[in-house]
Amino acid sequence: MHRFLDRELDREASLRVEAHLSACNSCRQEFYQLLDLEDQLESTPLPRISAGFAGRVIEQALRTREPAMTLPMRSFPTAVAACAIVIVTWVGFHIGEAYSTARRADIIQSALSSPIEPGS
């Protein structure tokens, strides 16, 4: 019945509830009581937002932080760290590469310069 009252039911289910309410006296009484309650709850006056509210909120928001700056500013340290890692990896890789190339050249050089033993 609460789903019916809150218009949460589809058309078919609503028709079934309506049919039941028209046939069942106790459910109908229960439903009328719920409707009375709904009427009662409506009768409460509400305050209004004070004048200049939006202006005050905006002023305070701008004083605290610029959202457009927030994301880049926050990611700056992460970006610097990422760049440092990439540079170190790149330099390390190339130093290693240069070293192994030089090492290979030495080995080839020494192999070529050493005399070949007969029968070996």
């Binding site: 509210f53 005050r56 909120v57 305070q60 928001a61 605290t64 932080r65 959202p67 927030t70």
Partner: peptide, 9 residues
């Protein structure tokens, strides 16, 4: 007011 400030931030 605090809700709107949080939305902004």
């Amino acid at each position: 007011q605090e809700t709107f400030l949080r939305v902004y931030r």
